[in-house]
Design a protein around this nucleic acid. Structure first.
Length: 262
DNA sequence: CACACTGTTCGCTC
DNA sequence: CGAGCGAACAGTGT
C-alpha cells in the first residue's frame, strides 16, 4: 500500500494522534525481522519519552523522540500505523505497540512483516547510509530529469529506484507512464527532454491528487489509470483494452494503443 | 490450488 | 567495481 502519498497521510495521522504522550511500554508480538537492531534498543530508548514531531523522506517516516533520538518506520507492502484505545479496536496484525500513559496505543500493524522500525539519530545521516535520494516532492525538475537522462535501463524500474529521488512506487510509476503515454520498457536515454519534463510534471500532479483524495483511489479523476485498471478495463483516453505485463519483475498496467512499445 | 501483491535487499552475472 | 536482474523475504486475499 504505502507509497509517498500514503506515508504522508500516515505522518499526518501520527502527528494528529500520538505526539506529547509519555511512552510507558513498547511491546512486540510475532515481529519477525521488523526490528533488525533488536527490540531492547528500541524499548530502552523509547520508554519514558514522548514523540515530539514527525518528518518524512519518500516512504520513510521518522518519529522524533523528545530526547533527540529518532524512530524510523518503513511500512513495506502492508504496514500502517493504528492509534486506538480499546482492546476491541486492536488491529489484527499488530506487531509492535507503543503504550502511552493516557491509555492509548500506537501500533505498527503489518501483516506481511516487510515493515521495519529502526533507531537513528539523524535523518540526513540515515538517508546517506541507506543511499536514499531526496523526497520526490522536494526536488527540482532538473534533479529529476538529470539522473534519468543518462541511464540505460528501462524507465519503469528507474522510477522505482529510491536513490535518485524517493517515494515513487508501483502504482505511481504506472500512472506517470500512462499519463505521459510512455511505454514502461522504454530505455531512459531514449526519452526526449520534453518527455522527462512531462514525467516530472505528472509525478507532482499525481502525488498532489493522491494526497488531496487521501489516497482513496475510487475518488480519483476518471481519466486516471488506477481507477480503470481492473481486469478488462478500458483506457479512459482511447477506449481500447488495458493489459497487464511484467516489467522489471513488477506487475504493470498499460494501454497498448496509447503507450507504444519501443 | 494457483497466483497476485502499492517494497526492499541480497546475490549472481556481466 | 557498478549496473542490471531475478529471487527472496512472509503472509493475506481472491
Amino acid at each position: 500500500m504505502p507509497e509517498l502519498p500514503e506515508v504522508e497521510l500516515y505522518r499526518r495521522y501520527v502527528d494528529g494522534t500520538s505526539l506529547a504522550q509519555r511512552i510507558v511500554e513498547v511491546r512486540t508480538e510475532n515481529e519477525g525481522r521488523m526490528l533488525p537492531q533488536g527490540k531492547e534498543l528500541i524499548q530502552n530508548t523509547s520508554v519514558g519519552k514522548t514523540f515530539s514531531h514527525t518528518s518524512r523522506v519518500g516512504k520513510f517516516l521518522f518519529l522524533h523522540l523528545d530526547n533527540g533520538k529518532i524512530l524510523m518506520w518503513h511500512f513495506g507492502l502492508t504496514g500502517a500505523p493504528v492509534y486506538y484505545r480499546n482492546a476491541e479496536d486492536r488491529p489484527r496484525f499488530e506487531r509492535i505497540v507503543f503504550d502511552f500513559d493516557n491509555g492509548f496505543h500506537l501500533a505498527f500493524n503489518c501483516s506481511r512483516k516487510f515493515g521495519r522500525l529502526e533507531l537513528t539519530d539523524d535523518v540526513e545521516k540515515y538517508r546517506e547510509e541507506k543511499n536514499l535520494g531526496k523526497d520526490a516532492m522536494e526536488i527540482t525538475s532538473e534533479e529529476f530529469t538529470q539522473p534519468l537522462s543518462r541511464k540505460k535501463t528501462m524507465i519503469k524500474p528507474a522510477l522505482l529506484e529510491q536513490k535518485h529521488f524517493a517515494g515513487i512506487g508501483n502504482w505511481i510509476a504506472d500512472e506517470m507512464l500512462f499519463q505521459t503515454k510512455i511505454h514502461p520498457e522504454t530505455r531512459c536515454n531514449d526519452l526526449s527532454a520534453t518527455q522527462l519534463e512531462q514525467l516530472f510534471t505528472s509525478m507532482r500532479s499525481i502525488i498532489h491528487t493522491a494526497i488531496d483524495h487521501e489516497s482513496h483511489y475510487q475518488d480519483f479523476p476518471n481519466e486516471y489509470l488506477v481507477i480503470n485498471r481492473k481486469d478488462g478495463g478500458s483506457c479512459p483516453d482511447c477506449g481500447n483494452e488495458l493489459i497487464r505485463i511484467v516489467v522489471g519483475g513488477r506487475g504493470t498496467y498499460i494501454c497498448t494503443t496509447c503507450q507504444v512499445s519501443p
